[in-house]
Amino acid sequence: MDELVEKIKKIFAEEKLELLIGYTKGTLPLRATPIFIESADDADKLIFDFTCHNNLAKYLLDEKKRGGDIRKVGIIAKGCDARAVVQLVVEGQFEREKVVIIGVPCEGVIDPGKLRKELSGREIKNFEINGDRTTLLGNGFELELDMSELFSDSCLSCRYPNAPQYDYFIGEPAEPIGVRNEYTSVDEFEKKSPDERWTYFEREYSKCIRCYACRNACPFCYCEECFVDRSTPRWTGKGNDLSDTIIFHIVRVLHTAGRCVDCGACAAACPLNIDIRMLGKRVEKEVKERFGFTAGLDFETQPAMATFNENDKEEFIM
């Protein structure tokens, strides 16, 4: 950890950073929280480990909205955070010159929703880590688990644990944890009948309380006004009617098609542990198969949905 702090202090000076977005220890066990540092002196507060699940690229957009001159921002970036930064730059949302990507090796991060699910309503006071295993300690209980059982589903099939583009890289690049093949869950889901799939989506989305934590955690949901918030005209009902809820989720997934970096921020933000990722991953697969495009890998390639290539497969166009 000292290496991180030390290097960040150097980078602060070298790059004349005015803001650094990183992580610090949270108030709950196994939780980190985003932190915004304006001076190298505060770098001691920084941490990076398996609790740092938030996608910090989201906050670049806040910097833009802040008004005034855009400051030079450093950002601690796991593979997915860095890809989100790259994609935001490609989409013209942030100037490349204004962001310093500081890559850190990611060996998977804990999804707080999965942790809650494992604990089934209980909460922990402490934890111990022993290699790939962890022991969760609470009031009168102990739960021993594989760390991977708490990792975000996105991490379990992540191909880019390290920033594909960066200005600095702190530490040794990580190997993908590769517990699962990237599209296994999607492929298996596709084998189900339409009725079974519909039942699944109905079950998942009927839990939705329309808090929009998924949307607000997503680096690519930056519309000035989301279609669900519009009142003139009103595109969809605002209550928790299932069809309205599903419209919201489907439109969000379509709107992030070819942009989603599968960081898992949407799923991790959901207070009800809804499987928000399934639809998104399916669309990501579609984009990859049809257009050979993976979002956020470099600053040059134009996003699949923003470009036309005569070699694009077109058999789905009527």
Binding site: C211, A213, R215, G237, K238
Partner: peptide, 25 residues
Amino acid sequence: SSKCLGCAACTYSCPTCYCFDIQDE
């Protein structure tokens, strides 16, 4: 507030938040 995402995970899970909107369908 700098890290707040502006979602309603807090207010919709809050037992004492009561604000509502009215809509015609």
